[in-house]
């Protein structure tokens, strides 16, 4: 196995850990942390895919844009959690379940 392949597998593991985090964490901010971990995995995966094709700079530029998008997502999610804390008094996602059925 060459290095990009190793990196890609590692990236998938990171995405998997992120998924585990979104499923096991109850705190909204921790869910945001888990999403960040997923995105780290995605960045590595994109760059590794570019590297495998000898197009490392293509992979880099895609990853740079994804990094921007993902940062905006994180900011929005954090702003939302600030608001959630204000309205619901807690960050526990189980409190956010009034829209049910």
């Amino acid at each position: 196995m060459n290095t990009p392949a190793v990196a890609f597998v590692g990236a998938l593991v990171l995405v998997g850990i992120g998924l585990v985090g979104t499923l096991t964490c109850r705190n909204l901010i921790k869910v945001a942390v888990a999403l960040q971990i997923m995105m780290k995995g995605v960045l590595i995966a994109l760059v590794a895919a570019g590297a495998a094709q000898g197009q490392i700079n293509l992979g880099q530029s895609l990853a740079a844009i994804v990094l921007g998008v993902d940062t905006i997502g994180a900011v929005i999610l954090l702003a939302l959690s600030v608001q959630v804390r204000r309205r619901f008094g807690t960050l526990d996602v189980s409190a956010l379940s009034q829209l049910r059925r």
Binding site: P4, G50, Q60
Partner: peptide, 19 residues
């Protein structure tokens, strides 16, 4: 660091500073 090792230094710096 992984990104750097994949010879993507610019992205590594971005990730360090932003991420």
């Amino acid at each position: 660091l992984v990104l750097y090792a994949l010879s993507a230094p610019t992205m590594a710096i971005l990730e360090l500073s932003v991420g």
